[in-house]
């Protein structure tokens, strides 16, 4: 019989609502709350030997201590599997369930959880657990619990070797798994295209990330008084790439002065960008970062000022999360410097 430890919060542990959110970790024998339904569904296959109950605020505010406690419990009980939640769209609870999964993972124990797809606990900890998608509120418990029980059953039957998210009914974990496909990539791509052209169903093998949106900002009213900044993902850097910005998958961006420069030259600048032929940019970096024409426009009074610093990184293979962080920091620098608008160039 498979031994399960179940992690739940103060509310589902019947300790109370928000007033009990500071409750430290408690270890209880057998199933509690949603665990009883899970135990019933798994009768004969698995047993919930212990339930860990912890207040959501306590867990998140004392994460290190809480994780140490979880680790000690798992070490002592030696379960085959830990089940956490379901957390629905409760942010702190989802974070706790995700973190519990990470602790279990680090100890070689599998974790199954359930939460709403937009719960931050999913995005942050999805690598470590198998998470069933639930509705956004506890009203979805009647669907969530059977789905989790089903996943636990499959996990037991398949001795921990679960199939794809689609086959098994958990949300994608952001992990790549190698396997041999029956048909080569080119054939699969053409088949997909034909299906698309024929209006038939087709399924991408690499879904694009979902990007967030920002509201269009109000326009510049008077260019002749505006400070315009240059930003690029084309990798233009001072000659020699002083900060060693990587040619792909950049982990940083650079901030460099163009004060007093009328244009960029082969001697002063180059591109750090891999993945495209750098010759044209290296010969005349203004082709990527148009300092020359903006400087002329500044002199003619068409724009108030060209900002004396430019920001640059390499867009080649750079992750969305890095790019987002660079963007936020660069925007903050520009804002603090009183810049009116930015021109972002991309290769």
């Amino acid at each position: 019989m498979i031994k399960i430890v179940h992690y739940i919060n103060q509310f589902f542990g019947q300790k109370g609502g928000e007033e009990a959110a500071d409750l430290p970790i408690e270890l209880v024998e057998g199933p509690v709350g949603p665990g009883t339904a899970l135990a019933a569904a798994l009768q004969g296959k698995a047993e919930i030997v212990k339930t860990i109950i912890c207040g959501d605020s306590y867990f998140n505010e004392n994460e290190e201590v809480a994780c140490m406690g979880i680790r000690e419990i798992l070490d002592e009980v030696q379960p085959d599997l830990i089940v956490a939640g379901p957390a629905f769209n409760a942010g702190r609870y989802g974070m706790a369930c995700g973190k519990v999964g990470e602790v279990a993972h680090s100890m070689g124990i599998a974790a199954i959880s359930g939460m709403y797809v937009e719960n931050p606990g999913y995005e942050l900890y999805r690598n470590f657990s198998f998470m069933v998608e639930t509705s956004n509120s506890a009203a979805g418990m009647r669907k969530a619990m059977p789905a989790m029980a089903q996943l636990v059953s499959s996990w037991i039957e398949k001795e921990g070797k679960l199939g794809t998210p689609e086959e098994e009914g958990y949300m994608p974990r952001g992990l790549r798994v190698n396997f041999f496909a029956e048909e080569r990539g080119a054939k699969r791509a053409v088949n997909m295209l034909i299906n698309k052209l024929e209006g038939k169903e087709f399924k991408t093998e690499y879904p694009m990330p979902v990007f967030d949106r920002v509201e269009p900002q109000p326009p510049v009213i008077d260019l002749s008084k505006a400070t315009i900044a240059l930003v690029t993902s084309g990798g233009v850097v001072p000659k020699g790439n002083p900060d060693h910005i990587e040619s792909s998958s950049a982990s940083k961006y650079g901030e460099y002065s163009i004060e007093g420069l009328d244009f960029l030259t082969e001697a002063s600048h180059e591109t750090a960008h891999g993945g495209y032929d750098p010759v044209a940019c290296n010969q005349a970096p203004d082709r990527v970062l148009p300092v020359d024409v903006l400087r002329e426009m500044e002199k003619k009074g068409k724009i108030g000022k060209l900002h004396n610093l430019f920001y640059t990184t390499v867009g080649n293979g750079t992750s969305v999360s890095n790019s987002k962080a660079f963007g936020a920091e660069i925007a903050m620098h520009l804002k603090n410097a009183g810049v009116s608008a930015a021109i972002l160039t991309s290769t």
């Binding site: 990007f211 949106r213 920002v214 495209y276 010759v279 082709r287 160039t345």
Partner: peptide, 24 residues
């Protein structure tokens, strides 16, 4: 299309990937 996908609001199409603002 990439610019649109990542959510740029004001977009000016450029000349070519390796030299968006020029042509050797």
């Amino acid at each position: 299309p990439i610019s649109q996908t990542v959510g740029a609001n004001r977009i000016v199409p450029a000349i070519a990937i390796p030299h968006p603002l020029g042509d050797p």
